[in-house]
Computed example of a mutant assay.
Amino acid sequence: MCEGSVVIVTGAARGLGRAHALEFARQGAKVVVNDIGVALDGTGGDDQPAHRVAEEIRALGGRAVVHGADVADWAQARDLVACAVETFGRLDALVNNAGFVRDRMFVNLSEQEWDDVVRVHLKGHAATLRHAAEHWRGRAKAGEQVRARVVNTTSGAGLLGSVGQTNYAAAKAGIAALTVNTAAELGRYGITVNAIAPSARTRMTEQVFADAMARPDDGAFDAMSPENVSPLVVWLASPEAGDVTGRVFDVQGGCITVANGWSWGPSQDATRRWRPDEIGPAIRDLLARAPAPEPVYGA
């Protein structure tokens, strides 16, 4: 499906990122394996897991290079894009997957825990996308017909909220907004931007949802396997998906759902300035006519 394409996958050493990288290789893509090898909370660093993924890709007959950029560093994100172009001659797709969690109830959340999670998820998506978009825009302005693909990773936490994960939920909500906004801006250059909200067994989810994430022991379909998510990612990054952009897809096991974002609901226009005493009855009427919001995870 992606024969000859060059793809960057961030956070590709483990979990979802590793599954994506291997599936891209199976589908004929050359893969830039990006990971700095941090622990679940973002500390430390070990490049060996990324090199093992690259070796797995080569064992499949594919081509891969490892790049250890901190994706939330503007200059390193630029170097990551340059690595793909310099190594393989081009870049066709970017899969933003890197991230970690520092879960805490909001009233106990530190400033550093807020900054670290928002930085790696939201800025880490924005930085790589910014430099990839600049590369593709340059190609488009030079007269090339660009068919570029971006797949971002949001979360049900970002779409619905998640108790104990306010920093993560806010960052993931930002990624959903980043997706629809850049899709609108970059379409003129031949770039599509979509996002997935995956449910899978990874380091970030195993501790939070231990029971739900357990592996089946009877040979049944493993609904929480990260490999279930990768076919959708590969398709969204393929030439076939050129007419799909600005969309968010929830994917759980074998189920793919289109997630609809904020939209205008019931309204009431006074055709003049409202008086404070009129607001209560009007709001009660609007809420009675509006659908109930989806519940926050964990509420």
Rank of each mutant, 00 (worst) to 15 (best):
E227P: 00
I57R: 02
A77G: 08
A259I: 05
S155E: 06
A195G: 08
V66D: 07
Q145Y: 01
V53D: 07
E278M: 08
R201F: 04
V233A: 09
A13G: 10
G158F: 04
N152Y: 02
A84L: 06
V53L: 06
R203D: 14
A77N: 03
R272P: 08
V151Q: 00
T87K: 11
V38W: 00
L286V: 12
H131A: 09
H67A: 13
E278D: 11
R14H: 07
M204Q: 11
E111H: 01
G62Y: 04
R272H: 03
N34G: 07
A142I: 02
E111V: 13
G242P: 01
G45F: 07
G37P: 04
H125T: 12
A19S: 14
V180G: 00
R14D: 06
D92N: 12
V71S: 08
G219L: 01
T182M: 10
N181M: 11
V234F: 03
L236P: 03
V120A: 09
L129F: 02
D285Q: 14
G138Y: 01
P198G: 04
F249D: 04
N181A: 15
G253R: 04
D103P: 09
G124T: 10
P281S: 06
V101R: 06
D46Y: 02
G246Q: 06
V208S: 13
Q207K: 15
L91G: 07
D79T: 12
A288P: 03
A126V: 05
G158K: 01
A19Y: 00
A133G: 11
G42S: 10
F24D: 05
F249Q: 07
R63A: 14
D222M: 08
G161Y: 01
I57K: 06
A82Q: 14
L160S: 06
N228F: 03
R188E: 15
